[in-house]
Every structure is written in structure tokens, then in C-alpha cells.
């Protein structure tokens, strides 16, 4: 093999080709050649790794890249059954913050951002209705937002203010309407349609098991010691503790069924039901739509197989 290569440097390419085929006719030569190629490739690859390593050491690049290990102390995972990995209590609600809506640039409560954006972008089921009403009220009162606010009073985020001021407005509106109910569910239907599943003055005694269950999926439900009324704030209301809520659910939904347990769990896991009291979960049909998990699956397979908008 080596001898034949020695001769090669003096030969033309044509000669080289014919010589090559002649040599490769011999099986031993062919095997030698294959081994030679394999070894050369191996050597080359090994050399490449060594050069990379040498380059890093010689130029100081390895040292530069490795630097110094950052102190891990501040980032250690918290191992506690009551906390998540960051050390936040599993029972405590995260403090709400405001974010600026990229569509209308108004400050919006983060926990209410999605329903706001839906309306803001005019995408929701009711958006056309809301939009047309807004246009109508704007034409009546072109320079004021007053009409707009009262039109949509379930839409807390439109006020642009804090939740509290919004609540105050609502309360004022409520008093004005002489509505005694503390249940916020009724608010949406200020246009006269009385809410059919309104729970005004309701106590747990008068409700069916199913009604209780549904209600407790949506509200805190703890019974006040003073007024003997149900707390209608969200399932994460700060007024009452998780323990109180759990105790209530255990007593109201007894005998303790697996269902009631799962329900309790779902609450802790942060059920997607709006956690803000100004939630617009008004009618059961609306709620149903909102929390529908997977819409129309017909022909899904066919559709999925060809990613959208691609040829």
C-alpha cells in the first residue's frame, strides 16, 4: 500500500485512476485500504478534539468561559410541603399586580387581563354587542366615558383604576338600584332580566346537593358569624382562610364524598374560575362556554395533520 502511494506522486490522474482499480482488484489490498482510511479518519477526529482542548488552554478561552461558579445560596429550592420551590406558601394567594394592556395601553389588573383583552380586542362572544352599545353611548356622550362605564359595569378593567375604586362604584350603583343582594352574580343583569339562578338570601338548607356544589365552585361560601350570610367573594377571598373554606365544604357537602374532596383540591389548585369578586360568571351557560376545555373536535385528526396555513 505505502509503496504504491510512493509511486503515485509521479503519475497523472489518469494513470492514478487505472492504477487504483488495478490495486483494488486484490482483496487484501482493498482491505488494507479500508483499514487505512478508517484509521486516518479516527486519527483526524481525535486530533480535532485535542486541538480544541489545546486551543482553549493555550489561549485562555477555557478559563474565560468557565469563569467562577455563581453562589447558589440565594436560588436553592425550598423543600417544604407548605411551600412551592420558591418558598411561597401554597395557601396564600399571589398578590395581584397591574399590567399595561398592549392594546389600549391602560393599566389592567393582571388576574383580569384575559377577559379584558378579549373585549378590548373585540374578540369575545359579546364583543359585538358591547361594541355597538359603546358606539351608541359614545355618540350620545362623545366626550365622556360615563356612559361607557355604566354600560359595561361588569368589565372592571375598563375603569383603569384600582379594583377597590371599582368596587366602590359598584356598591354605589348597587345601592342606587336598591338591590339588597350581596351576591355579585346578580350585577350583570341590571337591565331587568332577573337572574334565574340568583341566590339572594339563600342558605345552604334550601339548596340541593348539586346547587351547593356548583355554588361552592364559584364563591368562598363561608357563613358570616354576624350576618349569617354566605360570603360571596371568590374561592380565594382574603377575608376567610382556606381552613374555614375547607371546614365549610366538609360540613355542607357531607357525607364527605370523593367529589367534595376533589372539589376542594381543585380550589386549592387555583381553579380557573375568576378569582376576583367582580367576576362576570353570571349565567350558567356563559360559564359553561368559558370553561369548556376542548371545543369541536370533529375532523380534528385531519386538520391537525397539516399544520395551519402551510402548504
Amino acid at each position: 500500500m505505502n509503496n504504491s502511494i510512493n509511486i503515485m506522486s509521479e503519475l497523472s490522474m489518469n494513470d492514478l485512476n487505472s492504477k487504483f482499480f488495478e490495486i483494488m482488484q486484490n482483496e487484501t489490498n482493498a482491505e488494507d485500504a479500508a483499514n487505512f482510511i478508517f484509521e486516518s479518519v479516527c486519527e483526524d477526529v481525535t486530533l480535532g478534539v485535542l486541538f480544541e482542548f489545546h486551543h482553549g488552554l493555550k489561549t485562555g478561552l477555557t478559563e474565560l468561559i468557565e469563569g467562577e461558579k455563581e453562589e447558589e445560596e440565594g436560588y436553592k429550592i425550598v423543600n417544604s410541603p407548605e411551600c412551592d420551590v420558591f418558598g411561597f406558601s401554597l395557601l396564600k394567594k399571589t398578590p395581584d399586580s397591574n399590567c399595561s394592556c398592549p392594546n389600549c395601553e391602560r393599566p389592567v389588573s393582571a388576574t383580569r387581563f384575559a377577559p379584558h383583552l378579549e373585549k378590548c380586542m373585540g374578540m369575545g362572544r359579546n364583543s359585538s354587542r358591547i361594541a355597538s352599545r359603546r358606539i351608541a353611548s359614545n355618540s350620545r356622550e362623545p366626550t365622556s366615558y360615563a356612559g361607557l362605564l355604566s354600560d359595561d359595569e361588569d368589565d372592571a378593567d375598563w375603569s383603569g383604576g384600582s379594583l377597590q375604586s371599582d368596587r366602590r362604584k359598584r356598591r354605589m350603583k348597587n345601592n342606587h338600584n336598591k338591590r339588597s343582594s350581596k351576591i355579585h352574580k346578580g350585577h350583570r343583569n341590571n337591565n331587568g332580566n332577573h337572574n334565574s339562578d340568583s341566590n339572594e338570601g339563600a342558605t345552604y338548607e334550601t339548596m340541593s346537593a348539586n346547587e351547593k356544589k356548583n355554588l361552592l365552585l364559584q364563591i368562598c361560601g363561608v357563613v358570616s358569624e354576624h350576618t349569617k350570610k354566605l360570603c360571596t367573594r371568590s374561592t380565594r377571598c382574603p377575608q376567610h382562610t382556606e381552613e374555614q373554606r375547607r371546614a365549610l365544604r366538609n360540613s355542607v357537602l357531607e357525607p364527605s364524598t370523593p367529589e367534595s374532596q376533589t372539589m376542594g383540591l381543585a380550589d386549592e389548585a387555583g381553579s380557573p374560575l375568576d378569582s376576583s369578586p367582580s367576576s362576570s360568571c353570571s349565567s350558567s351557560s356563559r360559564k359553561r362556554d368559558r370553561h369548556r376545555a376542548a371545543p369541536k373536535m370533529k375532523n380534528k385528526r385531519d386538520r391537525n395533520m397539516s399544520p395551519n396555513g402551510r402548504d
Partner: peptide
């Protein structure tokens, strides 16, 4: 052992 690469995400309303 660290929380680097982990982050909670605020629920923006369902």
C-alpha cells in the same frame, strides 16, 4: 437544587 430555569406564571383569568 436551584430554581434557576423555573418560574411561576400568573393566571390572567382562566
Amino acid at each position: 437544587h436551584t430554581t434557576i430555569g423555573l418560574r411561576g406564571l400568573q393566571n390572567l383569568g382562566s
